[in-house]
């Protein structure tokens, strides 16, 4: 059991990294990865919301939508739940944990329209996790993978700042090309999980 969960987490984090392999959550990945501390903040906030979103959407899908044959409302229900959750968390953080709100709260509104969060909620269903804890493990792995990609890429970008690429490559193009090289590194994880847990 523990082993299964660890395999799920590592698979989601390294092999199927949401940002670099599955292309989910590219906007914050490119937008907020300029400074290390904002990259960490965004990564943690996304991980937190992914866990929260899974904790809400998985049971609702499994015990409500499937039961009443309302699967076609999945997208609409999920996005509303995520939006409401993010609002709620922001209000709670602002009221009771102002310190945390200052460090993480500013990223929360950005997350409502982050496709990685909705992606996790939907993938938990399509990948057919039968247990709640498996879905949560997947969400955790995806969130940590996002955090890892953000942090690694923040380091890369700090170097790019000082580099001088050809004029037309400045800004976005050179950022994308370095993202390509980081993604190439993650590509190497493909066979790792199998061999690690043999």
């Amino acid at each position: 059991m523990i082993r299964d969960l660890i395999v799920i987490i590592f698979t989601a984090m390294l092999v199927n990294n949401y940002v670099l392999v599955k292309f989910l959550g590219i906007c914050p990945f490119l937008g907020v990865s300029k400074k290390l501390h904002s990259a960490v903040g965004m990564g943690l906030a996304v991980t937190f919301v992914m866990l929260l979103a899974t904790a809400a959407t998985w049971p609702i899908h499994t015990y409500l939508l499937t039961k009443f044959h309302l699967e076609y409302l999945q997208t609409i229900v999920f996005i509303l739940i995520i939006a409401a959750l993010v609002q709620l968390v922001e209000i709670i953080l602002k009221r009771y944990l102002p310190a945390l709100h200052r460090s993480l709260g500013i990223y929360l509104p950005l997350i409502t329209t982050n496709c990685a969060v909705l992606g996790v909620a939907k993938n938990n269903i399509t990948e057919g996790y039968e247990l709640f804890i498996e879905a949560m493990a997947n969400a955790l792995g995806c969130g940590l993978g996002f955090l890892l990609a953000m942090v690694l890429f923040a380091g890369v970008r700090m170097r790019i700042e000082t580099a001088k690429p050809p004029k037309c490559f400045e800004g976005m193009p050179i950022t994308l090309i370095s993202a390509s090289i980081v993604a190439l590194a993650f590509y190497g994880f493909a066979g790792v999980i199998d061999n690690m847990f043999m």
């Binding site: 490559f169 193009p173 390509s180 993604a183 993650f186 590509y187």
Partner: peptide
Amino acid sequence: NSPGGFFVFGI
């Protein structure tokens, strides 16, 4: 594959 996506988009 994924690295190629970033690369082509950048170019």
